[in-house]
Design a protein around this nucleic acid. Structure first.
Lengths: 360, 360
DNA sequence: GGCGCCAACGTAAACGTTTTCATGAAACCT
DNA sequence: AGGTTTCATGAAAACGTTTACGTTGGCGCC
């Protein structure tokens, strides 16, 4: 019995090879390697060394054919950019690894048809799905979601139509920021630069603005300038606001990119921020803290969204949870310089809290 | 024969069900649905409607058990942050979709053991692998890479040890930038803020600096301050450089985050950039263009790296390519304000080129 | 009209696991 | 001692495909 590496056949070793090598049946090998007991310590040992010698690795296809489990979850994401995407994946991936699950990613498709195809392609490859997509609605899911694949939706308008959904508290975040501008920072009125009307996040943020205005500045008329989440549209909205008279005391942009454009418009006009006009955004993109003045904004814990979505899905897979609950993840108001709060510049600017421990 | 949706059984339909429904054998169903011919047009039709009626979707596990193909490729990535990660995945994903391949992602593991586990977990689940990881070296691959899984390495020091590798031209990019600082911008000497010595990118960038200095400023002594890619270390390096006398005319930071910290140090000291001292970075992170003054840097096309890595892998899978070639992707020098080129401020600042068409 | 050929189709064997069930031996209890 | 329980083990049936190989039948050709 030579024990050289040379004796290892070139073909992939199967469970039968291990069984022959260890002089037991395939059943025993399966039991031993899966640690289900029912096998003597010494035979277990013999099987272990045989498996190691042959470099045996179970075939996942065969295994999941009979088990009906793939230990893989699919993530269906839209065409996302930058920080948001990577943080989301990071949150999901970390949680998945902790549970021994693999992650099948399908991102960067735009269009309903594209999303539907991606979904079908995952059939039978995954035990469950995580979906974040602007194109999924009830009908879409009904039509394309395979019968019995547990699914949790992220940031979806579908509240409790029998789906498990996990939302970001866009409304609450916007509300809190506008409240801060009106009360703590003491600005008399706040204008909104809104996002595209078709966007769910945009709608919710506008709702938060309206509610906060109704509560804390009920006599002040609403002042909404339409944008579309791009920096360019923020710039234009900023100029439109400058043309207003009287000019609002503060501006809440529905996302940071628009706030950025707006800030340029203000600077260009020679206004001081926040002394002449205050500004706040939403998202807390990495750039926000590096602007001068640094941008007050609303921070959402994206990795946390991914993590808890996966936890929820895992719970569904284990049957520990009902598939119909709906939760919301909180946001945090981040006060920096542009919003002109009373505590402005109380502490010296400290830019040294790098977001990225590693690089490249 | 009722044709209602109600007749669709609750269990998942198999090929046998379709066969029974269409009154043919399973073999014919397989042939028909895979479009291999050997079936009449009318039977093909009958099978098609039967399959649609039963919502039949082939079981991937069973299919790949016999086919030995998963149509999935695995991506093994380190604990990456932000733009780099998302762009890389985007490039890979787009190319994969175009080829009908699925993407199994395993990111955010740090440590050799972790990476090895991730690799083993992909056994039999993927047809090939894309690997970008600081912890893989020849030994690691030898020990953990399954026998016959085609693999392409990204950004790896392993040049042509029989592996297919795709590199970023860190050296060339650094060389070009330092050359620009020395010649076009006309600075007499350039100091380097280097990255961690253990990092491959860091080493290559330093090499580029050394070569450019040797070529264009051979009489000037090298001036290298050690950093570790963090903003904090850049800040400290900046202060160290300020303490030098004579002070260098220009500084090349081995990545943008360090350039950022360095810029703060200069501003803090009351220096004007680039008039008093010039600065350049590497990576072209999104923040770079928004700084004031905006940061000159070296841009690498990350999505392109991902895309061509996958193309290469796909070629390997189809047997169209040899598995041992080694390629390098170019970088682009991006001239902005901080490097004090002669064309400085020639054109008005135009910040409206948003990177992200969509948001959230 | 018999012969062979080809296209359409069916039968059955793989693929590599897990799992149920049967079998025998050993240990335990009265 | 005899019966009963436990326990390690093996044989074999699944799981849902693809595919090599037969088996038809029809058709053209001599």
């Amino acid at each position: 019995m030579p024990c050289d590496a040379a004796t290892v056949t070139t073909k992939k070793a199967t469970i039968k090879d291990v069984a022959r090598e260890a002089k037991v049946s395939v059943a025993s090998v399966s039991r031993a390697l899966n640690g289900q007991g029912g096998v003597t310590a010494e035979t277990l040992d013999r099987i272990r060394v045989a498996a190691k010698r042959l470099r045996y690795i179970p075939d996942n296809a065969a295994r999941s054919l009979i088990t009906r489990r793939t230990h893989t979850i699919g993530a269906l994401l839209p065409d996302l950019y930058g920080e948001f995407f990577s943080e989301l994946i990071r949150g999901i991936d970390l949680a998945a690894r902790a549970r021994g699950l693999q992650l099948l990613v399908s991102s960067s498709h735009d269009g309903v048809e594209d999303a539907a195809n991606a979904m079908r392609a995952m059939q039978g490859r995954v035990d469950g799905m995580l979906i974040l997509s602007p194109w999924v609605d009830a009908d879409f899911l009904q039509a394309n979601l395979p019968e019995d694949v547990p699914t949790v939706l992220m940031n979806s308008p579908l509240d409790a139509d029998g789906w498990s959904v996990l939302n970001i508290d866009n409304r609450g975040g916007a509300y809190a920021m506008v409240q801060h501008l009106l009360t703590t920072a003491g600005h008399a009125d706040v204008a909104l630069i809104s996002g595209p009307g078709s966007n769910y996040d945009s709608q919710q943020r506008e709702l938060g603005y309206r509610e906060a205005m109704a509560t804390f500045a009920s006599r002040v008329p609403l002042n909404i300038v339409q944008g579309n989440f791009t920096e360019q549209s923020g710039y234009e909205a900023g100029r439109a606001i400058l043309a207003q008279s009287p000019r609002p005391r503060a501006v809440f942009a529905a996302n940071d990119m628009m706030a950025l454009g707006c800030l340029y418009a203000f600077k260009e006009a020679g206004l001081r921020v926040p002394q002449d006009i205050a500004l706040a955004g939403f998202d807390d993109i990495p750039i926000a803290r590096y602007l001068s003045p640094s941008l007050s904004t609303v921070s959402v814990h994206i990795a946390e969204l991914g993590r808890s979505a996966l936890e929820r899905l895992a719970a569904l897979l284990d049957g520990h949870a009902q598939s119909t609950t709906s939760d919301t993840l909180g946001c945090a108001v981040v006060i920096r310089e542009t919003c002109g709060s009373s505590r402005d510049d109380a502490s010296p600017k400290n830019p040294y809290q790098p977001k990225s421990p590693t690089d490249v």
